[in-house]
Structure formats: structure tokens, C-alpha cells
């Protein structure tokens, strides 16, 4: 009987020890879980902040890229429209110049063009080319020029050229040409005039 009660006491003792041990283990595991949770929360929070920061950065870059390229695309579209309008303006100017043959101002211009061009090609015999409409006028201008300066040896070509006005002068051996047609003068001045036309189109002039 007494041995039984001793055994029971021992069993109770072992049980209570085990119970305490288990409770302590559960407590420490619980505490550990809480600590882990707390640490993970911090880590997760940092991770979350990092992801958000990186996303914000990416969004900012994307925004900058989209805004930048849209602005650029809009500006480029404007450039193309202005260029079309500038070309239209030049086309219109060409038409007007082509029909200005009979005007006094054109005669004065042609006279100075002939004089400049002949002297640019230099001494010796030169051949002057012009369009069909200006042939008579140019012939007269050459004659006047030769009266003023008998050293000028210029003659009008029999072959008319397809230009809106002005002349082309060649040396007798054909090695030198001076293109002083209105077409080439427009081309030479085009880069300078484009700015003025663009300013007018933008309402800046």
C-alpha cells in the first residue's frame, strides 16, 4: 500500500515537473513567436517602405519619361506644321516672283544681277543664260553693260533655261558657272527667311 502511494507521489511529482516544464516551454515558445512576429513586423515594415519607395521612384521616372516624350512629340508636331506652312509661303512667293516679269522693280533687280554675275565669273568671254520671258530684257541689259564697259565680253545663250527669273553665267570654256537665278537666290536666303516666316506664324513678329 505504502509502496503504491510512494509510486503515485513520484508519478505526480514527475507529472507536475513535466507540466511545469511544458508550460515553461510553451511560454518561451509563445514569447519567441511574439518576438519573431515583432522582428518580422519591423523587417516587413522596412521591406514595405523599400518597395513603396522604389515604386514611387519608378513612377516618378515613368512620369518624367511620359511627360518628356509627350512634350517632345508635341513640339516636333509643331515643327512639322510650321515647316509645311513655311514651304507653302515659299511656294506662294515663287509664284508671285514668276509673274513679276514686267515690273520696273524686277528690271532694276535683273540689271544688277547681270552686272554682279558677269563680274563674279571674271574676265574673258561669258555666256549668259536666262528664261524665255526675260531674254529680250537680258539682251538689252547686256548691251547697256557693254556700252558702259566695253571690256565686258558677254553674250546671251540661245538655249533658254527653266527658272522663274534671274540669270546663270558661264565662262566660255564652261569650267566656271555662277548661278544667280531667283530660284538659287531663294534657296540661299531660305534659311534666313524661314525664321521670319516662323515668327509670323507663331504671332511673334
Amino acid at each position: 500500500m505504502s509502496s503504491n502511494s510512494a509510486l503515485e507521489r513520484t508519478i505526480d511529482k514527475v507529472l507536475s515537473q513535466k507540466e511545469a516544464e511544458l508550460i515553461s516551454k510553451i511560454d518561451s515558445a509563445y514569447q519567441e513567436s511574439l518576438n519573431n512576429l515583432e522582428a518580422s513586423r519591423g523587417k516587413l515594415e522596412a521591406e514595405r517602405t523599400k518597395i513603396i519607395e522604389s515604386a514611387k521612384k519608378q513612377a516618378e521616372n515613368l512620369k518624367r519619361q511620359i511627360v518628356g516624350s509627350s512634350r517632345l512629340a508635341a513640339r516636333n508636331q509643331e515643327l512639322l506644321m510650321i515647316e509645311n506652312a513655311v514651304n507653302d509661303a515659299f511656294e506662294e512667293a515663287r509664284k508671285k516672283l514668276a509673274s513679276s516679269g514686267g515690273k520696273d522693280s524686277y528690271r532694276t533687280l535683273l540689271s544688277s544681277i547681270v552686272e554682279d554675275s558677269v563680274s563674279s565669273v571674271g574676265s574673258g568671254e561669258v555666256l549668259v543664260e536666262c528664261n524665255k520671258n526675260d531674254a529680250e530684257l537680258v539682251r538689252k541689259i547686256i548691251a547697256d553693260l557693254q556700252k558702259k564697259n566695253p571690256k565686258v565680253q558677254a553674250r546671251l545663250s540661245d538655249q533658254p533655261i527653266d527658272v522663274i527669273g534671274g540669270i546663270r553665267v558661264k565662262s566660255a570654256d564652261g569650267t566656271m558657272t555662277y548661278d544667280n537665278t531667283l530660284d538659287s537666290r531663294i534657296e540661299r536666303l531660305k534659311p534666313l527667311i524661314r525664321k521670319n516666316i516662323a515668327q509670323m506664324l507663331r504671332g511673334e513678329a
Binding site: 563674279s120 565669273v121 566656271m176 558657272t177 555662277y178
Partner: peptide
């Protein structure tokens, strides 16, 4: 220069 725009063919 005075002769600006003159084209030469004698290469």
C-alpha cells in the same frame, strides 16, 4: 567674297 557662289568644274 566677291566671287561667292561660283561653281567650278575643273577638278
Amino acid at each position: 567674297p566677291e566671287a561667292a557662289g561660283v561653281e567650278y568644274t575643273k577638278v
